[in-house]
Computed example of a mutant assay.
Amino acid sequence: MEMIWFILFAILLAGYFALEGFDLGVGLLLPLLGRTRESRDRMVAAIAPFVLANEVWLVAVAGALFGVYPLLEGEVLFKLYPLVVAMLLSWVVRDAGLWFRRRLDGARWRGFWDAMIAFGSLGLSFGWGMAIHAAATGFETPVVHPVGIMLGAVVTLLFAFHGWTFLAWRTPGTFGASRSGRALAVSALVAAVPALGMLVGAMPYLLDHSAPPATLNVLSVMVLPFAPIVLGAQIWVWRTFRPGKDAFRLPSFF
């Protein structure tokens, strides 16, 4: 049972990096590719149908982490407290930008919230790299560490590349390139590499610190029946909003 839940946790974390990675990547690219108001609107419209569905993976990762590996809760929240707070604030700021940017039409209003989207995306991307480094070293190194900073930069660049590939797939030619679904799948795998690398290194530790078998059995009964529903919803989103399907429509909530 410990191995089954480790595999599920790995799928959830890698899935979050692969899916939310392009959302954050588009946010990172907003100041670079969004030279005009129209181009920024199109970039946000491209990711709008996927954002909430992708964030479900983060909720699932957090639930699995604290349910399957309860001993890590203290490690993550205590030793990484400043980083966790910074990442949560970045998440709030990024989502607030997505929700509020079109509530008013003023250039300053939109410019401010567009900047918040980019800033929040940067904070989350960079923070994930630093968190992966801390987890890979058993939370024994300082939160701000040269290798952690370097890994934060790497994750940020990978997410930016993934976001660019997503835009080239979702809105072919609009931002100077066109990419196939296969290319998007490859960039998703590349974006998930840091998370997968950390999990491979941390596998013995995680297996040794899993919750008791009785707890894992209860979690299996409570959680696993809902997995097909979540997967089906994700497939529906991707089939409904594939390229050419309302790629430039601006949802009212964004």
Rank of each mutant, 00 (worst) to 15 (best):
E2S: 11
F6P: 08
F9I: 03
A10Q: 09
L12P: 04
A14V: 13
Y16R: 09
F17V: 01
F17N: 07
A18H: 02
G21M: 06
D23L: 05
D23E: 12
G25H: 06
V26R: 15
V26D: 08
L29G: 01
L32E: 00
R35C: 12
T36M: 09
R37E: 15
S39R: 15
D41R: 15
V44Q: 14
P49T: 00
V51Q: 05
L52C: 06
A53Q: 07
V59N: 13
A60R: 01
V61S: 14
A62F: 12
L65H: 10
L65N: 06
V68S: 15
Y69A: 10
P70M: 02
E73K: 11
G74P: 15
L77M: 15
F78C: 04
L80R: 11
Y81K: 13
P82N: 10
L83K: 12
V84Y: 08
L88V: 13
L89C: 09
S90C: 11
W91N: 08
V92K: 00
G97N: 08
L98Y: 08
R103D: 00
D105R: 15
G106Y: 08
A107S: 09
A107N: 05
W109Y: 00
F112S: 06
W113Q: 07
D114P: 03
A115Y: 11
M116H: 10
M116L: 13
F119I: 09
F119P: 04
G120Y: 07
G120Q: 02
G120T: 00
G127V: 01
G129A: 01
M130L: 06
H133C: 02
H133N: 11
A134D: 06
A135P: 09
A136L: 11
A136N: 08
F139D: 13
P146H: 04
V147H: 07
I149M: 10
A153K: 12
L157C: 11
A160F: 09
H162T: 02
G163C: 13
T165W: 12
F166W: 14
A168N: 08
P172T: 03
F175T: 03
S180V: 04
A183L: 10
V186W: 14
A188E: 14
A188W: 00
A188Y: 01
L189R: 15
L189Y: 04
L196K: 02
L196F: 02
G197Y: 04
M198I: 02
L199M: 05
G201I: 01
A202F: 11
M203V: 04
P204D: 02
D208K: 15
D208M: 03
H209K: 12
S210V: 12
S210M: 09
S210E: 08
P212W: 07
V218P: 03
S220D: 03
V221T: 08
V221S: 15
V223P: 02
P225G: 13
P225T: 14
F226A: 12
A227T: 06
P228S: 01
P228A: 02
I229S: 07
I229E: 08
V230P: 15
V230C: 07
L231V: 14
A233N: 14
Q234Y: 07
Q234A: 15
I235S: 06
V237D: 01
W238G: 03
W238H: 13
F241P: 07
R242P: 12
F248S: 10
S252H: 13
